[in-house]
Nucleic acid binder design. Structure first.
Length: 349
DNA sequence: AAGGCGGGGGC
DNA sequence: GCCCCAGCCTT
């Protein structure tokens, strides 16, 4: 049997039952593929179900507010995916009459759709022989064929795409693509792969040469930056606070947060906080300020560690405090803020 | 070509 | 602590 038939045979017996596997509706497939970028199936699945329910068609998604789209995405991370998703939904609904493009080449032009996602949609929905290369495919191919080219180098990306393209099943490209990904996710896993019960182990180069633990090869490690956040949680006597939308390029674009005082190192005293320029700009006088979390909260992103303190500020009124505590949970916020809100409101009762 | 972008889970 | 996850976009 060929490599592709062996994988399809494995898939026949071992595939996961997932909601997006019951359909070829490009809207559903697109939604699932965007959500699963750099995301485990277990984490993405509940979001997929929420989205299908809230936005049954691409028109529903197109008509939704950006805030609603981000709110339902809250917690899934990489929020540019949600913004691009919304942009593309509007484009497909308004410019393409709700019909997704039907080829790899055309799909690739849509915002938020790269090589992987265009290949996935084209193969699954339209039977086009476009090979997907995701983290699973890199691992399976590098091990089975003993390819040591770094998977995140320009050369490696090209090489693995070409190799994958020579292997794809021409009759059922969509099934084959999902088969190799499921095989990578469930069987040829990063840690503790199931080599002793693998049906293609006899022709696996990595197993033969003892390279299963070292392949695939990835170069460059990301550096983690430390940041020190102080959030000013206002509480007016009438029950209002301030939330700001994060703009610009950094993390959490489009999400909301309390007024932020960022410093170069951890703030230890109230006096230090009050002397910060960003604090003084809010002109808070006659207030009572207390530190909510005695122990700094460390919120870890893949490339930043955020050392965070929440300062609760009670005051009579404030010109900018226009968000009622009653509706604060309707705003899309980072997980860091959401966890605080849960704790804060629990303690109050 | 390199860097930025979340959050969770496994070990 | 480190690595990885159905990657993409910007510079």
């Amino acid at each position: 049997m060929d490599f592709n038939n062996k994988l399809k045979y494995w898939y026949l017996q071992n595939n996961r039952e997932l909601p997006w596997r019951k359909t070829k509706n490009p809207y559903h497939i697109w939604l699932s593929e965007i959500m699963l970028q750099q995301t485990r199936v277990a984490q993405g699945l509940p979001y997929y179900l929420k989205y299908i329910e809230a936005f049954p068609t691409v028109f529903d998604l197109a008509e939704a507010s950006e805030e609603k789209v981000l709110k339902l995405w809250q917690g899934l991370g990489y929020y540019s995916r949600a913004r691009n998703l919304h942009f593309t939904a509007k484009y497909v609904a308004n410019e393409l009459n709700g019909e997704f493009p039907t080829s790899y080449k055309e799909l690739l032009k849509l915002k938020g759709i790269g090589d992987y996602t265009a290949s996935a949609i084209a193969s699954i929905c339209f039977n086009e022989a476009a090979a997907v290369v995701d983290g699973n495919v890199y691992r399976v191919l590098s091990r089975y064929f003993g390819v040591a080219t770094p998977i995140n180098s320009t050369k490696g990306i090209k090489e693995f795409k070409e190799l994958a393209q020579t292997l794809i099943d021409l009759d059922e490209p969509g099934v084959y693509n999902q088969a190799i990904m499921d095989f990578g996710a469930l069987h040829c896993k990063p840690q503790k792969p199931l080599c002793d019960q693998c049906h293609i182990a006899d022709s696996c180069v990595a197993l033969e040469k003892g390279l299963v633990g070292t392949l695939p090869i990835k170069e460059k490690k990301i550096k983690v930056r430390k940041r020190y956040f102080n959030y000013l949680v206002l509480k007016t006597a009438t029950g209002y606070t301030i939330l700001n939308e994060r703009k610009g390029k950094g993390i959490w674009q489009g999400l909301y947060e309390f007024p932020l005082v960022e410093t170069q190192k951890s703030i230890e005293t109230l006096e230090e906080l009050v002397n910060c320029e960003d604090f003084q700009e809010l002109s808070l006088n006659n207030t009572s300020i207390s530190l909510f979390n005695e122990k700094e909260i460390v919120h870890k992103l893949s490339h930043q560690h955020l050392y965070t303190k929440f300062w609760v500020i009670e005051l009579e009124k404030h010109a900018q405090a226009n968000i009622s505590w009653d509706v604060i949970k309707e705003y899309p916020v980072p997980v860091l803020i959401d966890k605080f809100l849960t704790n804060f409101q629990k303690n109050k009762i």
